[in-house]
Amino acid sequence: MPQLNPGPWFLTMLMTWLTYLMIIQPKLLSFTPINSPSNMPNTTTKTTSWLWPWT
């Protein structure tokens, strides 16, 4: 069963993850989010239940 032989694909998978961890991930983490969740005000909204016409 050739799909169980990790020889041809293990190096490809290893290089892909190393590229992601060393190059792509730090570049993505350096971006600053525009709308930071910590700047959102803590407001509570009053909700009312619906009056279903068929009940």
Rank of each mutant, 00 (worst) to 15 (best):
Y20F: 15
Y20C: 04
T19W: 09
N5A: 02
L14R: 14
M15D: 03
S49E: 10
P6G: 00
M1E: 03
I23R: 15
T45W: 06
W17D: 05
L18I: 06
P2S: 01
Q25C: 02
T32L: 12
N42K: 14
P37E: 03
P26C: 01
T12N: 11
T12Y: 14
N5M: 02
S30W: 07
Q3D: 05
T48W: 09
M22C: 12
N42C: 11
L14D: 09
M15Y: 07
M22T: 10
L18R: 12
I24W: 14
P6T: 11
P33Y: 04
K27S: 07
L21K: 12
M1F: 01
T32F: 14
Q3R: 03
S30Y: 01
N35P: 06
S30T: 00
I24D: 00
N42E: 08
T43I: 13
Y20I: 10
M40D: 07
T45D: 11
P53M: 11
T43V: 15
L11R: 13
N5G: 00
P8V: 05
W9A: 01
T47S: 15
L4N: 12
N39L: 14
N35W: 08
P8L: 01
N5C: 06
L11T: 09
T12S: 02
T44N: 12
W9F: 00
L11E: 09
I24L: 11
M40C: 09
T55M: 08
P6H: 10
N5W: 00
